[in-house]
Design a protein around this nucleic acid. Structure first.
Lengths: 229, 229
DNA sequence: CGGAACGTTGAGTTCGGTCAATGCATGTGG
DNA sequence: CCACATGCATTGACCGAACTCAACGTTCCG
């Protein structure tokens, strides 16, 4: 079985430093699948048969309860998702759907667990990944419990601006309705929050955000590396 | 160095199946400390010098931002806390204070990381622990984003009742103000939520909860193993 | 061209927080 | 043992944040 077609994922952090044998073992039954936009590829509650790795496109992780839905996270290339369920052989806690046309590698959970048992380097990588996801999730909870929706938006904008190169203008990476759900509010409330942030130097035109005076926004948002990286 | 005095922690899940050498290495510089109630033993933002294990008493994990404080979790014996920070050599994301008089083992982070590198069994245990904490944190986020405060309280009561033996009456394990903070609301709002749950068969007298009709409460709370275990 | 989905705005409501007053329990020092 | 202070829980009145519902304009596709 040629591992050539999996060369793109050889370099992700999760597989860094693992033996060639281990990589081959992981890929031997793995396959790449192309999904159209807006397709549900995982449903919460199902048992985890595969570890997924996004190669291109993007994937939204979301959750449902009693007629409510909320966006939990978005996965961008190249990274894996929902490894905790795989490792613990427990049901997925989140559903996943493609946001756009996406190529996704699916690695059978059994192979992941095998290699996890045999390759100490892989086990260490899994730990690093999990610890990082766990910390991100704690930060998320702090964000939700300690801040108002306006503050969450402000901090999200600062983070996004930084990631896109710290320029005055940058694009939102989400549809606004999804951003609202991710930030834990309704689309209507997001609209109003954007309006309210005008007094702190934020203007939005479609997907483009103009941030006149980051210093002013920072003063309002009070970002901290203990929540916002 | 006698490991006898650490016998209590030899049996926790995190150390299950690890070699005697590894255990000795972990305990060689570890020490047990007695804390009075209400003492802050960890402050968020500090670097993680120790892995902590609660032997007796209980520890509250909490976080602060901009004059707000919120309870994130409570740790009961015998278990460790904040292992993610230790493994990643990053600052604590939460503070910790004793809720009552508590005995706590402190294991130097350097030793934890050494053993983690050398003992594959320990590494696996760390993974299991982290995956479990991560999943708990995801559930927490779903609980916060998908439910109202009344629903969170109702589900908390059902969970607590189950853990205390499924009897009609059981004690709250928290002070009410801490429970409120843990559930993401104010003490005043918790009081009102308790009143509101009377119509679903819940009555509170001090620390004792009487649940006349669990079925009725379940109907309202709609618990699910994807959030509530 | 027409329909669907998205984003925005307004009006009204609900949920949850703030502030203040009170009662109760606990603990401390005289 | 009492007097007092302190802190927690509850209640009421009020306020503010966020949600719901509805209407409307825009954009994007079929």
């Amino acid at each position: 079985m040629p591992t050539a077609k999996f060369s793109e994922i050889r370099d992700i952090e999760l597989f860094e430093g693992i033996s060639e044998d281990s990589f081959v073992a992981l890929m031997k039954a793995a396959y790449i699948q192309n999904f159209p936009p807006n397709v549900e590829i995982i449903t919460e509650g199902e048992t985890s048969d595969f570890l997924h790795v996004v190669l291109t496109g993007s994937v939204e992780l979301f959750a449902n309860w009693s007629n409510n839905e909320t966006t939990m996270a978005t996965v961008w290339p190249v990274s894996s998702f929902i490894i905790a369920a795989t490792i613990r052989s427990e049901p997925y806690l989140m559903s996943a759907r493609t946001q756009e046309k996406s190529r996704i590698v699916m690695v059978p959970s059994a192979d992941v667990k095998d290699v996890f048992e045999k390759d100490a380097e892989f086990a260490k990588n899994v730990v690093t990944e999990l610890a990082s996801c766990y910390r991100a999730s704690i930060k998320n909870a702090k964000n939700l419990k300690l801040r108002t929706s306006k503050e969450r938006l402000a901090n999200y904008l600062l983070k996004t601006q930084k990631k896109s190169g710290a320029g005055q203008s940058f694009p939102l990476k989400y549809e606004k309705r999804r951003l609202a759900s991710y930030l834990g509010m309704t689309p209507e409330n997001l609209s109003r929050a954007f309006s309210a942030l005008r007094e702190h130097g934020v203007n939005v035109d479609g997907q483009i955000v103009h941030m006149e005076n980051p210093g002013k926004l920072i003063e309002f948002a009070k970002p901290t590396h203990l929540i916002d990286e």
